[in-house]
Every structure is written in C-alpha cells, then in structure tokens.
Design a protein around this nucleic acid. Structure first.
Lengths: 162, 162
DNA sequence: TATTGTTATACTCTATAACTATA
DNA sequence: TATAGTTATAGAGTATAACAATA
C-alpha cells in the first residue's frame, strides 16, 4: 500500500482505472452486495485459520453431527441445502480423521447414522474457539441492534421462494 | 414438496431429523447467515438463467468493461477482488465470443486495454434485462428502506480490515 | 419404484508459482 | 527489480448421472 510520490506520478494505466472505476449497476444489486460481503468474510476466515484443519464448511458439518447424534447424510445434506453427493467426501474425511463414526441403521440399512466421537471433543472445542474469534471480529463491526437487523433482513431474503 | 398422509407416517429417519435439526451456533454466525443467503440467491440466478450465456461473474465483468473502456485486466481483477490469473480465462472467453476486444497499450505494452464491442450491445442488453428481473425478484422481498439498510450493514461488514 | 449413499465426471471459482514480455 | 498477463496446477465446492444395496 505504501507508495512514493514519484511512483504515484508514473502509475501505470491499470492503477489509474482502479481509482475511478465505474461499477455501473452492480453496487445496486442485492445479489452483488451479498456476494462481495460473503467473499470478504470468507477471505478473513481463510487468512485467520491459515493451515487450520477445518474449512467453514467442514466445521459446520462436524458441529451439526455433534449436535444431532445419529443424523443421516441425506438429512445433513438437506440441512445445508446441498446434494448428498456433495456431502459424501466431507463425511468421509471426517470419518478417516476419527472425528466421527458411522453406523448402519438396523431399522433401515440404507441409512448411515453419524455420531460425533467423544475423543474428538478437544479438537472440536479448539476449532470452535478459532471460529468464534473470527466471527466475533466480523460481528464487532455492527452493533447488537444492527446484527439483529441484518439477521432479520437476510432471513427475509432467504425466506421467499424463487 | 407434496406428500401424502401415508408417506408422512412412514417417513424415513432422515426426514425426521430434517424437521428438528439443531443448528447449534451456526445461525448466530454472521458469516453463516451471509453464506446461506448468498447460496440461495445464486441458486435462484442459476435456476432462472438456465442455459444462459452468462454467469453472474462473467456478466459483471462484461458490464464493467462496457462501463470502463480501456480498463486493464489487473485493474478489473482488483475491482472484483480476485487474482489476475482468475480473470484471464474469463476475459479470454468474452473475447473469443466476440463480446470484447483487446488492445495492447502503446504507452505500456505489457497492458491489454479491454473494450466492449459495439455489436455486442444487443446481447448485453438482453442479458441485463434477465439479471435485472432476477435481481428485482430478490430485492422485492425487502422494502426500499430495508434495501437501503441492508446495503448499509453489508458495506459496514466489508469496510473494516481483517 | 423409491431412497441412501458412493463414485465418476464435470464445471466454476479460486489461488500460487513459474513463465514471457515488458518497464 | 517490478508489473501485466498466461499457463500449469491444485483444491474447494458444487452438480448430474449411473450404480449397488435396500426398502
């Protein structure tokens, strides 16, 4: 970001444009605003988690398995709004890392019930602290009232059908 | 979504869990709320654009090239907050489709100035109508006041440094 | 027939690193 | 040395389709 006055004078064309870019209609699009905000927040998670053992996605999956013992993969995929084929490899990685275990349901042997492994609790708690810290840094930019208002508006955007 | 009463009675385990899933801390995370909202909105764009010739990303790039004649790839990448290597293939596709053209800058032959092709105007206008329609459907879930408030809160979230 | 879960495949988006050409 | 742009590569995340096992 630091730049000498000389450098400023002979700045390349790209930078000149960078300072006076016309974004046309984009900033007026709710979809664009939400997308940019999401990218910004995820970038911060990546930066602060570094070579951490979880992505926001895989940590969320682990958290839901922990909170919902015996949940099936289809139910989990549905909860996150993704396809079951998207969930499969995520589950597989958590299982091979020993963080969860799978049990075939006797009542319906097509289903795999998922369980959080008790011995994974320290790893989970440590990860949760990291996620809470990043999240707190993001949320701190808004007052409590604003946080509630944002949650309400985002819920409203999600609520309606396409 | 339609389901007979009989089906409801003998619903599989996955569905039972689906109705009473405990999301633990996730709904309280701003990052999670924004992510879910973004996924929902993008899903609607995909569904309504169908086999359309643009993704939200590529259309945004075209819109900015049109609004900023002569902009370079690095400036464009910077405007969207992505790496120049991410922008390269997007630019290449727009060029091969004849929607834009590139000119090497005589003043700095490393730079490629990008220009919207006038003959692409009908395609652009048609695409913009589609995007405006989807966007209008999304924005319609909020009042004008709420739209402004959301924009303000999202900007505030993006504003601070990590 | 329908559902659960896996796998093969594909596409988008993203980045890093190494490279060429220029400055 | 530094920057613009390309390319090779990699990884996450997403989906569809076909499949085996089970219902």
């Amino acid at each position: 970001m630091k730049r000498s006055r000389a450098a400023l004078k002979r700045r390349p064309a790209g930078e000149a444009a960078e300072r006076e870019i016309d974004f046309d209609e984009l900033p007026g699009y709710v979809g664009y605003q939400v997308r940019r905000t999401q990218a910004k927040i995820f970038g911060e998670f990546e930066a602060m988690l570094g070579d951490f053992e979880f992505t926001p996605g895989s940590f969320g999956v682990l958290m839901l398995i922990r909170a919902n013992p015996g949940i099936t993969q289809v139910a989990l995929a549905s909860a996150f709004g993704v396809d079951k084929s998207t969930m499969s490899p995520v589950i597989y990685r958590l299982e091979t890392r020993g963080l969860i275990r799978r049990e075939v349901l006797p009542s319906d042997r097509r289903c795999h019930a998922l369980f959080f492994e008790p011995k994974a609790e320290p790893v989970f708690v440590a990860a949760r602290e990291k996620f809470r810290a990043v999240e707190a840094g993001v949320a701190a930019r808004l007052s409590k009232t604003e946080q509630r208002e944002l949650a309400r508006l985002l819920a409203k955007l999600q609520g309606a059908q396409a």
